[in-house]
Amino acid sequence: MIPAAFDYIRPSTVEDAVNALADAGEEGKVLAGGQSLLPVLRLRLAAPALLVDLGGLSQLRGIREDGDMLVIGAMTTHAELAASSVPLLAQVAATVGDRQVRHRGTLGGSLSHADPAGDLPTAAVALDAQMVLAGPHGRRTVAASDFFVDLFTTALAPDELLIEVRVPKLQGWQTHYTKVGRTAQAWATVAVAAAVRRENGSIAQARVALTNMGPTPVRASAVEQALAGVAVDGDAIAAAAAHAAEGTAPASDTTASAEYRSHLAKVLTRRALLAAVGR
């Protein structure tokens, strides 16, 4: 449980961080809160030559408003997010890991790590968040649905950093996150994020995203379509939720089988939707 030797820098600007990553090429790794990276290093599952610690980038920490968007700095901790009023993300962040993890772990770190069992990537996908990436050649914005590419793989180039996440304020929406995990601090076996906008007693629009139902967080499109325009009613929601596992590819592992995960996706989708609309 001792990492292989590595070099370490702690830049104070995003530019310095990005340039250091560019110089290191494939040998560089970004250290944010360290909650996923340090175990990987200690188990020697990775042995980067350089760690670029973002801890000195205080400009990446905090939440601000920008029109009808909220802009969350990538170094904002789960605890800070949980204490905020950012729709959905606040509730989701409060369920991540344990207290210690939430005070060290960061939103940017969790999203960039792209663990299929991670909670925050699902919330980002449910919210249609926009990811702002900085690289040596400037900045670009990537939609959350394009950001998560595969298991532990994102659209980030080796010399790019996720610096902020932009999410809509979602005024008039109701959201909820429901998960099943083996213990309070365990990763989700399966979890579901739901966001619903109502108009005149009906569901005008719904967004449903699933955690750990495949290599990346996925939107339950069939559920969303089935919900559009239906009455806010238990039976209608249950009928729509029955489509939750369609098109998913959950894994079987020591925590659960794919079959059970598919079953959970349906139950938890129904429950998340009902909780979101206050039923």
Binding site: D98, T183, A184, T254
Partner: peptide, 26 residues
């Protein structure tokens, strides 16, 4: 919660607290 699990080759799959499900006070 707890169970030590071996795979078919005799590798202990639950060789860290990430996999060996120890409950906490929560």
């Amino acid at each position: 919660y707890e169970e030590a699990v071996y795979d078919a080759e005799g590798n202990l799959l639950t060789s860290s607290f990430a996999d060996y499900t120890l409950p906490s006070s929560a």
